[in-house]
Amino acid sequence: MFEARLVQSAILKKVLDAIKDLLTEATFECSDSGIQVQAMDNAHVSLVSLNLRSDGFDKYRCDRNLSMGMSIASMTKILRCAGAEDTVTLRAVDNPENIMFIFESPNKEKLAEYEMKLINMDQEHLGIIKTKETSYSCVVKMPSQEFSRICRDLSQFGESITFACSKEGIKFSASGDFGQATVKLAQTADADKEEEAVLVTMQEPVKLTFSCRYLNCFVKAGPLCAQVQLSMSNDVPLVCEYKIGDIGHIRYYLAPKIDD
C-alpha cells in the first residue's frame, strides 16, 4: 500500500508545471524516504531530478518500494481537476496498474477520485543517477522571478545565453542577427528581504553557454520558490535548483554548449 497526502494540492500542480514541458512520461520511485523522479528530456540534453521527502507530506505510507510510470500529460489533466484549496492524496496498491488521485475540499463536503493508468516504462531504464555532489566553482542565489525575466528577455536575441560569473556578480549575455544583450547582476550588499538577494559564492570565475530552450523550461519552476540556485563549474552541467517548501527540491541539470 502506498499513500501520500498533501494538504496543498497547489504544490503538486506547480511541480507538474515545472516538468511538463521537458518530460512526456516519467517513473516515480516511491520508497519509505519519499518520492523521487529522475528523467532526461527526449533529446538527452537535460536531466530533471525531483525529490519529495516523506516527512514533508501530511501523511505518508509506503509499505514496499514502487516504481510507477506515469504520463505527465495525463497527470496534468487530473491535477487540473483539483480546486486550489483542495487536499490531494495519492494512493496505490502494491504491484499497481493504476494510481488514484483523491481531492478533498477544505470543508470536506466534496470528495473527487480520479484513477490513472500507469505506463509500463520498458524503455532504457535509468535507475537513479548519482548526481555528483561536487563543489562548484560558482554558486549564485538570485530571485527566481529575475532569472525567469532574464532568460525570457535574452531569448529574443539568440538561441543561447552565456553565463559569466565572477566575484562581483553574474553577467548574462546573448547575441544574434539583430543585436546583442547583456544583463549584469551585482551581488546585493544588504537586501532588505532575503528572497530579493543576489548572492555569489565563488572559488574561480566561470563562463558557460546554455540553450535558451531548456532554460525557459526550467524557469517554469519559478512559482515553487522565490529564489533559484545556479551551481556552475567550467565544462560541467549547470545545476539549476528550486526548493519546494519544506518538502524537497527540483534540480535541472543542463549540459553546456561547446564551440565546434
Partner: peptide, 14 residues
C-alpha cells in the same frame, strides 16, 4: 554556433 552537448555524456554510463 556552439554545439549542444548531451547530459548523458556526464551522468550515464551506458
Amino acid at each position: 554556433a556552439p554545439k549542444q552537448r548531451r547530459i548523458r555524456e556526464f551522468f550515464v554510463k551506458w
